[in-house]
């Protein structure tokens, strides 16, 4: 999943280590999130969104993962 964490972190003037402390995760985890090697759990995604003051959907882009299969029932 693509995300804008690095861009938003730099806009706030935070290092990876500073963001890690604010999120109470390791610096390695922040790096894995930014490079797309790890998709966060829902609680961590909400913490990131709250800290970066952005809606979740403006930070994370699921791309084709969100595509609904053809023939899925409409609500």
């Amino acid at each position: 999943m693509d995300n804008r964490i690095r861009q938003l972190r730099v806009e706030h003037g935070w290092t990876q280590a500073a963001l890690a402390d604010l999120l109470q995760v390791s610096r390695q985890t922040v790096n894995a999130l930014e490079t797309g090697r790890y998709d966060p759990s829902l609680p961590l995604a909400f913490r990131i969104a709250r800290l970066l003051q952005q809606p979740i959907e403006s930070i994370f882009d699921p791309g084709e993962e969100l595509d609904v299969p053809a023939g899925a029932p409409a609500r």
Binding site: V10, T15, Q16, A17, A20, D21, V25, S26, R27
Partner: peptide
């Protein structure tokens, strides 16, 4: 940038 330093965070050191 300078913000991409790879040192451990304070939390990392404490852990």
């Amino acid at each position: 940038s300078d913000l991409d330093t790879r040192g451990p965070s304070n939390g990392d050191r404490a852990r």
